[in-house]
Design a protein around this nucleic acid. Sequence first.
DNA 1: ACCTGAACACCGTTCAAGT
DNA 2: ACCTGAACACCGTTCAAGT
Lengths: 228, 228
Amino acid sequence: VWLRPERGGDRKLNRERMVGRAVAVLDAEGMDALSMRRLATELDVTVGALYWYVATKDDLLELALDAVLGEVRTDAPGDGWRAGLTAYAHRYREVLLRHPWVMGLLGRLPNTGPNALALSDEVLVVIERAGFRRLTDVLAAVHDHVVGAAVAQVSWREALARTGAASADVIEHVRATAERHPLLASVMSPAPQGPADVDAVCAQRFAFALDCLLDGLAAHLPATDGDQ
Amino acid sequence: VWLRPERGGDRKLNRERMVGRAVAVLDAEGMDALSMRRLATELDVTVGALYWYVATKDDLLELALDAVLGEVRTDAPGDGWRAGLTAYAHRYREVLLRHPWVMGLLGRLPNTGPNALALSDEVLVVIERAGFRRLTDVLAAVHDHVVGAAVAQVSWREALARTGAASADVIEHVRATAERHPLLASVMSPAPQGPADVDAVCAQRFAFALDCLLDGLAAHLPATDGDQ
DNA sequence: ACCTGAACACCGTTCAAGT
DNA sequence: ACCTGAACACCGTTCAAGT
């Protein structure tokens, strides 16, 4: 998408307005609610008009994805690499959770928009200043953890939303799994399973794993350990 | 889905045959190729017949997701927790990369099928035997890293596949980004960017980050460090 | 250059009716 | 119980034709 010309245009439409409205619909009603026709009527335009600015719906989604990544800003560099990476990871995570539909796009579309590149570059600067050798590996490690944790949390939310109230079937199902997997059951039971609890558990879990990861990464700093 | 009865049936169809064929289509031609109509003709049946065994297409996809997770088997427990978790992570990753369409489902559908639960339980046993306190946190840390790394790799593949040969536009685009982000450019340039190289880079990157994570987790073992 | 109107080839889902 | 046939309300995309 990033190659295709911006296609000026300002009579009724432009890419910015399209992407903005698309993100609004996606945030409010999710992926299934966004059709080209829906977006067109929302912009007071016929469907065909959209294809003047965008070659395909996937192009539009790529634009929406990168627009959202623009919300992640690395601020105040210079508090040390660990604080910098931690702040980056938390900000990135918050953005993903604010726009859950992004998770369905990450594995399906390329993610090489200008905002994605700018963000990688900024974080790489922090990693380089820290003295790491494998710059991209460290970046990927942090990045992958954020994405993985966000995917898991959204998936969990989805599972809770799907099973509305506790019908008799659900109770029977839980009982059956508990019988087959006693350890899993004992480990899950203390969780009250409310949607708010899920977020709290995930937030704390995320911070824990991130700390472990950064501990492990720190051991690969030349000053501490010459091993590459 | 897991609540709804199996709906016996063996005249022409059953869930197993449906899911098997669906996975085959998904593996061969990806998410976009799988429609209910396509699956029906592939099974010598009309579309309506499918809805006897499955309430919705998402249900079918949930079944396909869990079926794929069944390919991840934890073998030979007892080589130590670190070897066990490493083997689990690598096997899980291989399965995800063999079925790239799964990545588009993970953040969109609940993932609470019997195979997913059984797998979690088996890994939890390894984690508990190791002496960890926060069982689920450790499980999630490893799990999230696998998913995040797989998502990134598939997304990278997709980006390469999308930009076919190096047209003049692509070259101009790369040059422009290189100018704006010199560090990013210098770090990316050594990569020959072939599809095979991507897999190799990602495999090594995955192993590195996993090692770092396990190092960090090991520090939280009571024997080594009483801190919870 | 930008947008409309209308069409094409598909979707997922439902449901009477058959066997 | 299981499957067919046909319909309903949608899709993404294309493209002549208008301005």
